[in-house]
Design a protein around this nucleic acid. Sequence first.
DNA 1: ACCATATTTGTACTATCGTCCAAATATTCA
DNA 2: TGAATATTTGGACGATAGTACAAATATGGT
Lengths: 248, 248
Amino acid sequence: MVRKPAKSNAKADAKAVSTRKPNMREAILAAAEELFSTYGFNAVSVRDIAQTAGANPGSVTYHFKTKDGLLLEIYRRHCGPMNRRRSELLAAARRVRDLQDRLEAIVRAYVLPAFTSGSDLAGGGTRFTRLRAIMSAEGNEVVRKIIAQTFDDTSHAFIDAIHESLPHIPRTDLVWRGHFLLGALYYTLVTPERVSRLSRGSADGTDAGHAIEELVRATVAALQAAPLDPATPPPRKAPGVTQGRALT
Amino acid sequence: MVRKPAKSNAKADAKAVSTRKPNMREAILAAAEELFSTYGFNAVSVRDIAQTAGANPGSVTYHFKTKDGLLLEIYRRHCGPMNRRRSELLAAARRVRDLQDRLEAIVRAYVLPAFTSGSDLAGGGTRFTRLRAIMSAEGNEVVRKIIAQTFDDTSHAFIDAIHESLPHIPRTDLVWRGHFLLGALYYTLVTPERVSRLSRGSADGTDAGHAIEELVRATVAALQAAPLDPATPPPRKAPGVTQGRALT
DNA sequence: ACCATATTTGTACTATCGTCCAAATATTCA
DNA sequence: TGAATATTTGGACGATAGTACAAATATGGT
């Protein structure tokens, strides 16, 4: 990461009235989250994080041992609340009677928590999702592990719910389309010049709201598209609800 | 990037019969392309590239001056052929009579060159698109510049063509959906465990082909979805053209 | 107030980074 | 061939990376 030209006043700002951070650990986490999600993991140094947090580089090592440990802690912070919120919204969506409305509610249940996290300050969900997007491109081992053990269950639950709403579409196609949804969501968040005030500032700003609506609309349509499989003619009526979930 | 544990035979492989690379510059480019597209720009060092290419780190500086210069040259290599191929396919797609078929042909014209580049060796297109995906997440200044001056025109041409096939949908929505397409495409390429043999090996393997078909099917459906704007009842004619940066 | 503990600081270590450069070597062309 | 040029080599530079550690300082319970 590019640091500013130093500019040490060296004399004037020496004492600085001993304003100690009430919780430096939190400040470091916040700074790391912001910097990682903006510049990527590799481009940000521990010293960058410490400086942004107003801390000493040694403090970062003290609290999180390694740079990877810091990243891991950020994930730990967000994965729980985000998945909990997703489960809640998914459960509510499943109770929607109209099939079309239910499908849309399911997609919304998946997308919404990515923008508005239940935890900490405004824009937390967006920032964390942007981080996940960047990490999925950079490919970090720590992240791969925690993602596998945290998001896989939730993802399968969503695929299952979607499959119930669209029983005539093979699961394979739905998995692909869910994959595309995630890619579209990620790319929307890592392209700040497109969705300008979406990333910073209040998480329920109109820009983020519009992006969500566009994404939901497009995804629902994509999910409903006829499957590729040439052997399966179109709708028919829903046969039996396929109870057994393949792919745990 | 993590380098392997050295393991210097130090004695056995000393002379190595003076096999000089016929074109070291090309070897460096190929190595850089492969490494950047796999680990990201920041995670790969000039020494990594030199070692993979069987060159001296100084040679990289000699040929490309800086690491950024090397990245720039990779983009220069691919942008031309890829956009030329896109234009050809787009022109052919525009001549399709049936509106539904035409829309699908347009989407295919956008997606196909991302997988199979006209230039160099097998998988070149896939590799370069994977690189673009990673760079869009990492955010490099050099890339931003060349992307702006290379892809904007092509992207607008595609949006225009799509808009002709779907005149009742506001351009804004089409821009969003094209944006989602690119995100889905990128994410498909940077997630190798999902589309396993897609990235390496032959570029027209069945896996890549299947991914393309899934992506095209989903995108066409998404593009055809009803627009968001509540003020615009279904068909009608397209109002003014809202120019926006599309599909970098 | 005192002590035990938690945290912060400053500094130092080693490794690797991008880039530079002079010498060595290969290539090209008269 | 010999001279001019192009390329490669190996080593070096300063900057910065992640991490470690002892000393300094703040905090909390008694």
